[in-house]
Design a protein around this nucleic acid. Structure first.
Lengths: 345, 345
DNA sequence: CCCGCACCTGACAACGTTGTCCAGGCTCTA
DNA sequence: TAGAGCCTGGACAACGTTGTCAGGTGCGGG
């Protein structure tokens, strides 16, 4: 029974443990723990010896064991749709900053807009015992989270509401923003206005569509089916959809784009048109002001969204926040030219 | 001595453990473990009973304990400069995809270009016993990683090389790319060419500056100090620097921008100039083709950078990769107009 | 000079899981 | 029908850390 047989073969070689440090420093295990955690009650001389042994062995505390013992991981999970989407950059950054301010690490993953993958990710994070979750949901049924919520995992949904459970939600006012954006086009004389957006099963898309319809109805303009294109998001199909509504029997003179990916593609299409077509997009994007014409957008503050969510998360953890709420942040219309073009009939 | 006194007060309330599940199902602890891990040797009937208890209690395995026992966390760490920088979006996405393909989670953090913060983050990740690290370094001395490397933590540096240790590195060819970009301007007749870049202590910045100098030297053009602006990255100062070199005694007729943040600001400045000034930027960015003129760039493939790094990481973990290497990915010059403007003397 | 007190230090159990090992019951065959 | 072998299930230790508690030392005061 050689000593080597006692340790399981893992890929870490054999990292030194507190026990090893203690042996080398000629002190007890607990004393090492005290030094590592800067607890009081250790003679400077003893502390020096321990510190020396730590440096010599290259010891690093094993947080898994610590977590197991203490019950809190000081880490939070962030589940979003796509790390590479520029919209989520400032959002994750804000969540990370807040986490950092609370001494927590951030674990994150992309759901790729797939509800199953979202659930898989969230549950994996729960198994790691993250203290809290910030979720940009892909699915619309989150009852699978009920045991977690009961167990006290703090949870905040961002950008889209939770489905079938009662949880904190931080949103942008998609409905109001879209309505204002479309009303802006109407105010500039447009009546035939197109809408291109993502699948209505995504809450924000549905809300923006609703805003579009509301603005049109407020102005007493009947909406034609040919003006609306839903569930379209990849560049090829957005291009096709835009071209369709520009050449339909009653061609649109303006387009409202439901998110920034759509907006960017529409900009390309309009760039190729002979007659000017007005455009308002939901979501701001870098360089929108440098294009000719500048792109008028309904801007939402992604960083603020993330900050608000993360702060609520930590307030849940503090215990200073108890009842779930739904917070809606206002949007802001930024006029840059494309939304103020008159209709070219 | 109530039972409740036995459990430490943690924020998870009391989550059910395998022991609880076992008690409820009327089986042994290990049997539950077998069911949870889909190990063979459990009767369907027993499995059903256990599964029922799991669902009823909302049990979720505690991965901390599992990790402690097994030694591997199935997670990797990604340390980058700024989550919100669009350049890192595709990179993190690629790392995440690769991690996912290997069944690993991604933990990440931003160093904000601060070496201390980088070290702090990296060591925190090591304490969590991540299996591997992908690091976009902020500092230039990574000897603090030596104990970790010895302990077998797989490590790959991306975008910038490691300092004072021998480690895997995946880079873009900053020197060659910058040289080509500047040579492109020279080929279009420019001789007074400005360079605006980040601090030379950042490896990529230094390399790009070196590329600029090499191209100028190859063409026999002496470089004036007034044409170079280093360590400048925030919009205000970039603007100032650009304006300076455009109005100096020997004003530049073209600018080479050292990274995409600089490029974007320079675009704004040039947009306000009366005479046309040529521009080539390092790093591609969205919509560069839609500006007037389109912005000519030296493009690097961020996603490929991330994918290559992550794949090498997992090959290190497989044991199929043993000696550290330095890999340089080529860049690509994309001409769109701004780099082909003739000098306006 | 001795008692008590404060201050350090270390032994030990526990966190929740998995690997090892053994016991008991079953089936199948001789 | 008995023995061999297989299959299922459980008891137990160990992973590395931290909380509890008790022992030991040195010092000051009575």
């Amino acid at each position: 029974m050689a000593d080597t047989a006692r340790r399981p073969e893992n890929r870490y070689g054999n990292r030194p443990t507190m026990k090893d440090v203690a042996a080398r420093a000629g002190v007890g295990l607990k004393t090492v723990s005290r030094v590592v955690n800067a607890e009081p009650g250790v003679t400077p001389e003893t502390e020096r010896r321990v510190q020396e042994a730590i440096d010599a062995l290259g010891f690093r505390r094993n947080d898994s064991a610590r977590v197991l013992r203490k019950g809190s991981t000081a880490s939070i999970g962030l589940v979003l749709e796509d790390l590479a989407d520029p919209f989520y950059g400032p959002l994750s950054r804000a969540v990370e900053e807040t986490a950092r301010a609370h001494g927590a690490l951030l674990i994150n993953g992309s759901s790729a807009e797939d509800p199953d993958r979202e659930q898989e990710l969230v549950l994996a994070l729960c198994a790691r015992r993250v203290d809290g979750l910030v979720i940009i949901p892909a699915g619309d049924d989150h009852r699978y989270l009920e045991p977690e919520l009961r167990a006290g995992v703090a949870t905040v949904f961002v950008d889209r509401p939770a489905g079938r459970i009662d949880a904190d939600v931080v949103l942008s006012d998609s409905f109001g923003g879209a309505r204002d954006g479309v009303a802006h086009l109407i105010a500039h004389g447009h009546r035939r206005i197109g809408f291109i957006g993502d699948m209505p099963r995504i809450h924000t898309s549905a809300e923006r569509l609703r805003g579009y319809r509301a603005a049109m109805e407020d102005a007493g303009i009947p909406v034609e089916d040919a003006w609306m294109s839903l569930g379209v998001t990849d560049p090829e199909r957005v291009r096709h959809a835009a071209e369709e509504m520009l050449t339909s029997p009653s061609p649109v003179t303006a387009i409202f784009a439901g998110n920034n990916r759509v907006t960017v593609t529409v900009v390309r299409v309009l760039d190729e048109q002979r007659r000017p077509v007005a455009l308002v997009g939901f979501d701001d994007f870098e360089l929108a002001d440098l294009l000719r014409p500048g792109v008028t957008v309904v801007a939402q503050d992604a960083a603020q969204l993330g900050r608000t969510a993360a702060e609520r998360l930590f307030r849940q953890l503090d215990g200073t926040l108890l009842t779930p709420e739904r917070i809606e942040l206002p949007t802001r219309l930024i006029t840059r030219g494309s939304g103020e073009l008159p209709p070219a009939d």
